[in-house]
Design a protein around this nucleic acid. Structure first.
Lengths: 374, 374
DNA sequence: TGTAGTAGATAAATCGTTTTACCGCAACTA
DNA sequence: TAGTTGCGGTAAAACGATTTATCTACTACA
């Protein structure tokens, strides 16, 4: 229910009014729009002409009630909607969803989370034919609610167990490959910059324990880094310093990098759980006049387009964001059509660019001095 | 109507079923949800408990029909929706809209254009309480349709005359300031890279005639550049070479820049109608090993965040994208509440950064050689 | 005891369509 | 001429909620 009171609209022409005007039954009006073959061409023309004069257009809500379909798909973002549009991976995901839904003539309804509020609010009383949940947390009450309403849904980067099909990526192996790349270069101390482990998680340093994460992507990535450390015989809690941000933004990445780099015994590499955070870390390094990658390696995750354009370009893990959106939309449309399609797991791929290198030998970092940018 | 056939859903619990189960009337069930004070606490608890057991949840469409409101606002993008999410200014605009709508408890429905199809399709049969049109073209049939349905609406960067309030920016004066900046630096020949003047406009060189543009932003910007040329006594058609792209993307900007720079008598400055196009032009210059800004100035429009981060940073015109979204949402909510608010015009501001400089003297350009990035 | 007042619950109308039967009528077949 | 099509059109029943007006007990007070 909207908080702003809605003014009653002045009465508009209704199907009944048009029927009276043309002296036919309501059924005939409806047929003129949806079953042209059921009435003579002349009568149909007459009806449409009068409709135009009257400014009549069928009411979508009434139609939706009668037809039991809205032609709209809901996409539920894991955080407040106002953050969604500065989250490049989500934008690319939406692009994929939009490609498919516009071909299928479905509209898109966007809902965000309001964790401070009653939790199911974003998905309650919303007229859609199905939902796509983007990065829902574990045991998300909104997923449960949609399950009760018996609407079809798809979970993207969510956990199994809800009964809904999943679209995921090989997050853990991607993270593993990335961390292994760093360990092979000789890094022994990593600063990890992560988005929140759970909604409302406090900003600041935390234990690098993947089990604490309620978001699958965060958990898998942390687990992948830790697994790589284990493989190289490095004790994870000593190797890693974890700093948790409140939102996936460049600014938050910048602040986190400052916090980590200004601490005692700073790491030789910053591992960011997203490219956005990594862009912020790059900015911080520039401000601190730390040369990347020579004095400090910075790696991201997601391979957003800007990762290839920035200077230095970002070493990161590629994932097929747009394709993920396409697949999610297809899985949902399949359910609407009565076909139950299986979950899909999409591949990730390590992309080595210019922001990672072997660590400087001890003592050299202070001397490195000059900044990267020309 | 959706192109994919929708499978009839299995019958779910309805309000009537719940009423029968608890042995009360439908009215009482409704009151339990929306007017708790109208029934005893014990009965209400009993009802909610049974509802939970039954998995009952009120149907949003039926509620919408009876209440004559959907709690949803539609945002109409000027192009296909799949382009919308790689359009940074639109994302920022949506961010502003989302901020306001989530506070007011409204949901957001996104619709795109399909110019190849029946034109009003995106706004027909869609259940919303009002529309925001983002950059509608002149005489947009979808705006007219919404006018006929007598739904409230707001036009962003659109033309007056529809009867709907407008949200605009001082586009022409912003463009004027930008072009004047270049003329003062001594540039006498500009390459203009523009998004389409009209939907479906062919890619390639065209006359730099602002009157040909069906999109207000394009027209105003072209007019602003031309006005600055006039002020400096320069004959506009000779000063400017216009290249029109098909969509506002980096790749299109890159191709356009290649086309212009590889022609005879290339300009000393590229004026791009958006930062996205300018980022593409920067990439093209890098590929052609033309130093920016020493051998070639490149300027954009919009001041997207990346414009400040790229190397060299972009000279551009700032506009308050997020605020634009907030204002548009407020104007629409005002109409829903029965208040008619006046149109708003937001300011623009020239931002001079590192991508513009005085043109190289004749002959020097070929010798300039080295690329900007370190 | 009679009357007024109140809390709790309900019957029925309504929101604006679409669809399922069914009906009348003209034209065609046998 | 009787029977059969087929066309063009309609009456009435959904779809699933909310609201208005009304009705019934029951309490309180004089």
């Amino acid at each position: 229910m909207a908080a702003v009171s809605v003014k009653p609209r002045k009465p508009r022409a209704r199907l009944k009014d048009l029927a009276r005007l043309v002296s036919v039954s309501p059924a005939t009006i409806s047929n003129a729009y949806h079953h042209p073959e059921r009435l003579s061409a002349t009568l149909r023309a007459k009806i449409l002409e009068h409709a135009d004069r009257l400014g009549y257009h069928p009411d979508p809500t009434a139609r939706g009630l009668r037809m039991q379909t809205t032609g709209t798909l809901g996409v539920v973002y894991a955080d407040a909607l106002s953050w969604a549009f500065i989250d490049p991976p989500f934008s690319m995901f939406l692009q994929g969803v939009a490609e498919v839904t516009q071909d299928a003539r479905f509209r898109l309804l966007l809902a965000g989370a309001t964790y401070t509020d009653h939790e199911v609010e974003p998905v309650r009383n919303v007229a859609v034919d199905g939902f796509v949940f983007y990065a829902p947390m574990m045991h998300d009450p909104r997923v449960a609610y949609v399950g009760q309403r018996e609407l079809p849904a798809v979970l993207v980067d969510g956990e199994p167990g809800s009964g809904f099909p999943l679209v995921g990526i090989e997050d853990e192996s991607g993270a593993f490959a990335l961390a292994e790349h760093l360990f092979r270069l000789g890094h022994k101390k990593l600063g990890i910059i992560s988005m929140p482990l759970r909604p409302g998680y406090p900003i600041g340093f935390a234990e690098p324990d993947d089990a604490a994460a309620a978001f699958l992507a965060v958990r898998d990535r942390l687990a992948g880094y830790a697994a790589a450390a284990r493989k190289h015989g490095l004790p994870w809690p000593e190797v890693a310093t974890l700093y948790v941000t409140s939102v996936n933004s460049i600014e938050q990445g910048r602040q986190a990098a400052h916090a980590i780099l200004s601490g005692p015994n700073p790491p030789t590499a910053l591992v960011c759980l997203s490219d956005q955070l990594a862009l912020g870390a790059l900015a911080a390094a520039r401000e601190l006049r730390i040369a990347v990658p020579h004095a400090l390696s910075i790696v991201g995750y997601d391979d957003i387009p800007e990762a290839a354009r920035t200077t230095p370009s970002l070493t990161t893990v590629h994932q097929p964001h747009v394709e993920k959106g396409r697949v999610a939309a297809h899985l949902l449309l399949d359910q609407l059509a009565g076909r139950k399609s299986p979950s899909r797991l999409l591949p990730t791929r390590l992309v080595v660019r210019d922001s990672s290198a072997a660590p400087a030998r001890a003592g050299r970092r202070a001397a490195a001095g000059r900044v990267t940018r020309g």
